[in-house]
Design a protein around this nucleic acid. Structure first.
Lengths: 106, 106
DNA sequence: TAAATATGCAACTAAATGGTTGCTTATTTA
DNA sequence: TAAATAAGCAACCATTTAGTTGCATATTTA
């Protein structure tokens, strides 16, 4: 299907998913799907779909407890995005760019 | 349509576009569309479409010179992604998380 | 000026996305 | 045990996406 990194970026490229992820990060604890859904102007199934995408990117972990499914955010995959960005930092930051050139020439 | 930040994330969430962007960053100079297209296993029009998405996210700047259109990469919008990630760093890095807690309690 | 080159534009396609509704199933609770 | 609650699953829909082909246009170059 899609490589892990692409899944992560696709997951966070949707504003609603970023909102869901952010809300889950802030509460720090795990929340049942219904409780998450009530906070969004969308059907439960819509939210469930977004949660599935986040889960697939490992940005959310879901585990069942009785009839409820508790969702908790996991920021770790974002490290990969950060790592990917690091290479480009020298190109957006001119002073770092100069440093890069300096190191190349020495 | 879409907010600027979402456009940036959507632009880099496609592997082909990341490749195009990366190639452009590496050459540092501006390249005509045809020259970019020959390096990808895709029609010129396909590449053009991707370039348009990148241009829309301001990750690529295009300017005409005669019959050619020169494309150059611009990494600056990636700063915004970096900034967005900064908040979540405390949640993926446990030591920072502890620091955060420590600061909260003091 | 005629041929070649670089590109744009439009139409089309298949698949993915973001969302819905309707119904079923499993677990609680009264 | 019956009603209420939490959720899954499937089908559907409109829009976007990633890509194509075909053709027109503008600029070079021979």
């Amino acid at each position: 299907m899609q490589d892990k990194f692409t899944k992560i970026l696709k997951a966070i490229s949707d504003p609603t998913r970023r909102e869901i992820f952010h809300a889950l990060i802030l509460v720090t604890s795990a929340l049942p799907i219904n409780q998450i859904a009530t906070n969004f102007n969308m059907t439960r199934q819509g939210v469930t779909k977004h949660l599935k995408v986040l889960e697939n990117a490992n940005l959310v972990t879901i585990n069942s407890q009785g009839r409820e499914r508790y969702c908790i955010a996991n920021a770790k995959p974002l490290k990969e995005v950060n790592k990917w960005l690091q290479f480009y930092e020298q190109f957006w930051d001119d002073s770092l760019n100069n440093l890069g050139k300096y190191l190349d020439e020495s």
